[in-house]
Write a protein that binds this DNA or RNA. Sequence first.
DNA 1: GGCAAAGTGGGGAAAAGTGGGGTAAAATCA
DNA 2: TGATTTTACCCCACTTTTCCCCACTTTGCC
Lengths: 145, 145
Amino acid sequence: MKMFLGTYTNKIDDKNRMAVPAKFRDQLGGKCMLTKGFDECLYIYTMEDFEEMAAKIAALPQSDADFREFIRDFFGNSELCELDGQGRIKIPQNLREYAHINKDLVTTGAMNKVEIWSAETKADFDLAKKMKDSKFTDKLREFSI
Amino acid sequence: MKMFLGTYTNKIDDKNRMAVPAKFRDQLGGKCMLTKGFDECLYIYTMEDFEEMAAKIAALPQSDADFREFIRDFFGNSELCELDGQGRIKIPQNLREYAHINKDLVTTGAMNKVEIWSAETKADFDLAKKMKDSKFTDKLREFSI
DNA sequence: GGCAAAGTGGGGAAAAGTGGGGTAAAATCA
DNA sequence: TGATTTTACCCCACTTTTCCCCACTTTGCC
């Protein structure tokens, strides 16, 4: 099974470029889809995984205002990114703002996608603390974890 | 899969012209259909997609007064636009008013169409959206997304 | 240490975006 | 119908952004 693993730190430069960790590049094959994540981060998908998801979303009825918003939000915040000669992608302004990206990044493999976090935002999330929250652990238990 | 992606900001000039983002131009091929959007924005369709949409709408039963009004509104506010030498289209007055377009625009890819928003209207719309987000995720789940 | 690969920064050419002038076509009105 | 005004459109010019390429620094590994 193909999956993205590991955590890396890197920087974004003045031209909105960030180097995709070399370990992830082979799996992406020169290009990738960059999208808004469900949390305050960005996702990198392979082309195949993105298209699978896009096809599902494309089938939603446009007569429904909520779905129109969702479609707009999803496609409007997705970008096809080609890696440059140095293995970097360009992060568009709208996505950069969404993820509160300043300078330092944390890039982490999350199974079928790569997540890009602002270092500051990521630091706020602490797993050890979360695991002490009984509401959360109850929720986990329902899934046999 | 061919689709419109990404969000861009641009301006409309004193001659009612706006530059179509370069990324979208190739897919449009020199001309496009400009229509009134379902929300307070305008849509740009490719010729093929417009015709597909138009065929669906034209097939609505004319015996129904609601549909008659919808058909009238749709075709009455559709315009064939040719891109000029700089890749710009002209926005007619009626559509400009409908979308409350002043000067600054937000242009966003939304799968099979491009949406043109007044920057101010879009900002208000996005804010309102934030409020409703949690309810909406429940609705999405019914579609396995 | 020394080499290779990865990460980072920046210059410069090309493309995209924006504004405006001039002329032709269309609309308006006497 | 003819004269005047308005609108549309083609072209040029300037500014901003993007992207390709090169170079330096850092990291990892033998």
